[in-house]
């Protein structure tokens, strides 16, 4: 039996398989070098990069919740300069499609990051993290509002020729509206979902379980909600979607693709097992053989009533 075709076209990008490591749960890449062959991945997205280095939140930063986890790392990062001089050279020995997750404390910072990195050949696309708290807007995430989403994507689109993917927060009332604004702003794709806002309390001390009080919930707990958002957005926008949220098996991958994602990202599963992504790629292939699916691209959004 011939191998199923796992390759997916995503606008200008061509992924050899639909499994991408999500931002924030795969470090900068070098951390995983002893655990997986990065070339086997469909793609890789770096930790969020702000213009300046950031120390992130104090500890404790994570807490396990049923079927998932809560985190508020606080986007600790090395900043664009060190990213360019220390991390990009590392990636030259790999062929994997590389996305840089772009973060910003305000609208201007996103632009400055993309401006700084726009000519780097090793970078294949920018994923714009529209869930960063805006320091000038009371900690609101840009992707909670259609106007800010539109404005930021539009301002970046003019700077770089590389594909721009808008990563959206799921903690909104009407995801279709936010997705449409990103599309109108010129986004080449959408990553959905970032973590859901959540919290946990220690009932003895009555303190929040993590220092930031509020954090992001990820893991299998959020999968059904993430899947529903991807499904809704796929019916609304024409640009392709990177689906994520609790994906941990071949079945999860195929569910997201059938719901309308073109490719998927693996997040929390890599924290649980650094080799999860590779195991998932292999089992997607196996599952497709069993189900007699020949080409994964043909399954995108192909839901039956």
């Amino acid at each position: 039996m011939s191998k199923p075709d796992l390759s997916v076209k995503f606008g200008k990008l061509k992924f050899k398989n639909p499994v991408i490591l999500a931002s924030g749960t795969a470090g900068y890449g070098y951390e995983l070098e002893n655990y997986i062959d990065l070339n086997e991945l469909g793609g890789f997205i770096t930790k969020g990069i702000y213009f300046n280095p950031r120390s992130g939140n104090p500890s404790p930063r994570i807490y396990e919740t049923p079927c998932g986890m809560l985190n508020a790392i606080g986007l600790q990062g090395i900043g664009v300069k060190r990213f360019k001089s220390e991390i990009l050279p590392f990636w030259k020995k790999y062929k994997t499609i590389l996305g840089v997750n772009v973060a910003g404390e305000d609208e201007d910072e996103y632009k400055r990051v993309v401006e700084y990195l726009k000519d780097e050949k090793r970078i294949d696309f920018f994923e714009i993290n529209l869930s960063c708290p805006n320091v000038h807007a009371g900690g609101k995430s840009p992707s909670w509002e259609p106007e800010t989403t539109y404005k930021i994507i539009k301002s970046i689109k003019n700077i770089s020729d590389k594909p721009i993917i808008a990563k959206l927060s799921p903690s909104v009332t009407y995801i279709e509206e936010i997705g449409e604004s990103a599309e109108k702003g010129g986004a080449d794709g959408i990553s959905l979902v970032n973590t859901f806002v959540g919290m946990a309390i220690d009932i003895k001390s009555r303190k929040a379980r993590i220092s930031n009080v509020l954090g992001g919930v990820s893991g299998p707990a959020i999968k059904p909600m993430a899947l529903a958002l991807v499904y809704k957005l796929h019916k609304t926008v024409k640009i392709p979607i990177m689906g994520l949220g609790g994906i941990n098996s071949a079945e999860d991958v195929l569910e997201f693709i059938i719901a309308g994602a073109s490719v998927v990202q693996i997040g929390t599963a890599s924290i649980i097992d650094p080799a999860a992504s590779i195991k998932i790629i292999k089992s997607v292939e196996k599952e497709m053989v069993e189900l007699n699916y020949k080409k994964i691209e043909k399954l995108i959004g192909k839901m039956e009533k």
Partner: peptide, 12 residues
């Protein structure tokens, strides 16, 4: 409190 143990999550 630790997440990954491999350096990728910055939780600890």
């Amino acid at each position: 409190r630790m997440g990954c143990g491999t350096g990728i999550c910055y939780g600890c």
